[in-house]
Each structure stands twice: as structure tokens, then as C-alpha cells.
Design a protein around this nucleic acid. Structure first.
Lengths: 231, 231
DNA sequence: TCTGCGTTCGAACGTTCGTTCTAAGTATAG
DNA sequence: CTATACTTAGAACGAACGTTCGAACGCAGA
């Protein structure tokens, strides 16, 4: 639980426009380890009080560091949020890609997508809440890169839905299906309780069944074509 | 679109502990109309900048009123959020109850639940975003009443799921089903685009099909009992 | 020992926050 | 007309905000 989730993030703070001096082949410098610790604590604080509601003094208290000390490692509060979101999202995406390499078949791949997301959520609850809930907190400059990762994540899922649709000759709106799925798996930060709701695998199975059975048209409600809503 | 959503809310501001003097039988006083206008604008501002991120000076600008003028109608920023959330949630709940009176059968009732939620979202997008996204913004004193309404809303949906489960002898976890459904319909504020996604009725049909078919077990993935996760 | 650099912090910067004070406006009742 | 309540706003309150400054520390290499 106390595992560091930012073990060796490359922060590349810019002091007067110059990158950090190349300490040749040193993967986890003291600087990076310390920044990682700050990001871990900042994630918890942002999760608890929200990005706007959390102050640098809160982070100072949580890390046991002075205000000026924080600024030695990260140039602004906004950049802290940026680094948290980027690291979280990049990690999810990378894990997903690795897992998808070993699985074929649209249905199984969608199940992997859901499982990957929920497993990461359970292992890093604050990180995923900050990613989901503070989606609009970054200003234009910072948000673009996060938006890019989000778009890739979305397109992967949309692709999987499209594959399933094609393979089985189904008739549903992929966009609505993906967004509904995202709602299910992102909203979880508002209600998940490990003691009541079981582990990620159990939840993933339930949600996968709902989405997949829901899309594959179990039978009863005849669904019309939604071609008009594709644009 | 510019319809006032707070036509005559009873605000009962307390000046030194005394309720507003009884202006006998005047349902929509100038005071209430003015407060309603402030709440409408505040909803938009909170929606756009978030509760913490929005300042009273933002609200002053949006309403064309002075700071002190705002405080004449509402005693604090937090109470503004409270009134917004309470009014929004109460309205949804009342509309739902009326609609459910005329419908029988678990499946149709669940469809009505979803339709009611989405129709209200489409007609009052900022209100529902503020309700969903600023869920944790109120302090203990204020949040209790909202939490009560939320609990009732949740229990109604849980009841509908239970009815469906019993009626058809199904085997799924009602809590997970309800929470997944809530995720689908609440997350919508992050992606809904009326030009692309159609109206509330179309969306409600798609989401209803996903949830209902998903639960009713279209066929393929055999689902085990989840009795262990009920506690 | 001295120099230089990464690190740390107390103290303060200027700004903005939610809120309040005081007094002036306006409408209506007598 | 005065009297009274309701409505408005300019100016300011103390507190908290994100951020910066200058001076110290500890420790390597000369």
C-alpha cells in the first residue's frame, strides 16, 4: 500500500531553460527519488481535497518539507498535477499494450481492457481518481499532452468495439458503448469498497459481462440501427 | 435554454437566527426570483470553473451584482452550492417518482429511471455536472442532507434491480449493477455532445439496452453466483 | 582549507480569497 | 411629507493563496 508509484520519473525540471545535467547512466538519482515521493504524497492530497482545494502548504505538511523545498523539485502546483496525470495515464496505457499483445479475439481483448483498468485502479486508487476527477483542471498548455494520451486510450477501446462489431455482425453505436464503458470504470472511484466489492478481477468480470452481453444483444429489446448518430 | 431552473426556491436565509418575515401568501416574491437568478448563474460558473475554482467575484461578474449584493441573498458560497445540489437532486427525484407511478414491470421501470435521468441532464447540463462532480465539496454539516437524497435515489434503483432479479430468477450482483449504471449515466457530462450523440431518448434506449441485456445474461459468459460479495 | 553545487528552509512577496461594514439608494405604507 | 423595510454597492477586513528570495547547510573535489 505504501509502495512508491513514482519510483524514477524523469522530471526534467527546467532551470533557466536548461535540462537537468546529464548524470550519465544513473537511472534513479536522489533527486528523482525525492520528486517521486513528493508526487506520491501530492496524489493523495489532491485525491482527498481536490486539486483546487489542496494548497501547497497542505503538500508541505504531507511531505514534511518546506514550501521552498517543494519548489526545488517542481516549479509549480500545476506541473505537479501534470506529472501525476501523465505518469498515471502512461502507466495504464503501457500495461494495456503489453497485455493486449498476448490476447486475440475482440471479446477477450475487451475483457483485458476492463481488467487492466480496474486492476490499476485498485492498486493506485488516488492516482486514478486524480486522473478522472481533475480532468479539466490543467490549463491549455499543460492539458494538451494529457488529452493526447486520453485520445489514444479512447481510440484503442473504440477499435476493440469496432472489431467486435465487425466480427459478429452486430449493430450498435461504438461511441456510446465506449463512453458507457468508460463511465462504468471511471465512476468506480466514487463507490468502490474493497471489503464489499471484491477485487479487481471479480469486478472486471461483472462489468465485462454487462457490457459484452449488453452489446451482443441478448435478445428481448430489438435495437434499431444507429447509423444516424455516427458522424 | 435560458429557462430559469430556480423559479421560486424557498431560501429561508437566516438573519441573526430569525426566519424571513412572513410576507403572508406570496409564492414567488421578488426576493426568491432574484435568488433563483443568482443560483442559475452560479450553477453555470460552478460548472465551468469548479466549485473551489470559482470565486464570489466570478459570481458577482456573472450576475452583474456586487459582492455584498450576493450576500444579501445567500449567506455563503457553500450554501449556494448546497441550494443548487438540493434543488437539482430533489427535482430529478420528484420527476422520477411521478413517472414511476404510471409504469409497472421491472424492465420498463428501469428504462424510465434511465430516461428520466438523461432527460434531466440534457435539459439542465450544468446542474447535473455540479451535482455529480462537486459531490464531495460540501462540508459535513451541509453534505448530510444531500447524502440523504442520494441514498434514496440509490435505493430506488437498487429496488428496481432487485425486482428484475427476482422476477426473472437472475443471478447478478445488484450493487455492482446499480453502480455501473450510475457510472454510465453520470459520466455523461464529460462527453455528451447533442450534435453527435442525439437526444436523451436515443441515448436512454442505448444505455438501457446495454444494462438490461447485460444483466439478463445474453448467453455466452456463464456468470457465477456473487453471494460472497454481498455483505 | 577553500570553492562550488545540490539541497533545505524561514520569511516574506504581491495577490486573491470569502466575508463584512457602513451607508446610501428605492419603494411603499401611514 | 416622514417612517420603515428592503435592496444595493464601495471599501475594506483578516486570512490564505502560489510563489520567490536570500541565506544557510552538507559534502564533493582542488
Amino acid at each position: 500500500m505504501a509502495m512508491a508509484t513514482f519510483p524514477a520519473i524523469r522530471a526534467s525540471r527546467r532551470l533557466s531553460g536548461v535540462l537537468r545535467p546529464k548524470s550519465r547512466r544513473a537511472p534513479a538519482t536522489r533527486f528523482d527519488r525525492r520528486l517521486g515521493h513528493i508526487l506520491d504524497k501530492a496524489t493523495e492530497v489532491f485525491c482527498e481535497k481536490g486539486y483546487e482545494g489542496a494548497s501547497m502548504r497542505d503538500l508541505s505538511r504531507a511531505t514534511g518539507m518546506s514550501l521552498a523545498g517543494l519548489y526545488h523539485y517542481c516549479e509549480s502546483k500545476e506541473r505537479l498535477l501534470f506529472l501525476i496525470q501523465k505518469h498515471t495515464f502512461t502507466t495504464i496505457l503501457e500495461k494495456l499494450k503489453v497485455r493486449l499483445e498476448n490476447v486475440s479475439g475482440p471479446e477477450q481483448r475487451i475483457r483485458i481492457f476492463i481488467l487492466n483498468h480496474l486492476e490499476y485502479f485498485v492498486s493506485n486508487q488516488p492516482g486514478l481518481k486524480v486522473l478522472s476527477h481533475e480532468d479539466e483542471a490543467l490549463k491549455n498548455g499543460w492539458s494538451a499532452e494529457i488529452a493526447g494520451i486520453k485520445r489514444e486510450y479512447y481510440r484503442i477501446c473504440l477499435g476493440l468495439m469496432g472489431d467486435l462489431r465487425r466480427q459478429r455482425g452486430l449493430d450498435f453505436n461504438p461511441r456510446t458503448a465506449v463512453m458507457s464503458l468508460f463511465g462504468m470504470i471511471n465512476w468506480i472511484y466514487t463507490w468502490y469498497n474493497p471489503r464489499v466489492d471484491g477485487d479487481a478481477e471479480a469486478l472486471a468480470k461483472q462489468m465485462s459481462n454487462i457490457v459484452l452481453n449488453g452489446i451482443v444483444n441478448g435478445g428481448k429489446p430489438r435495437k434499431k440501427a444507429n447509423s444516424s448518430s455516427i458522424q
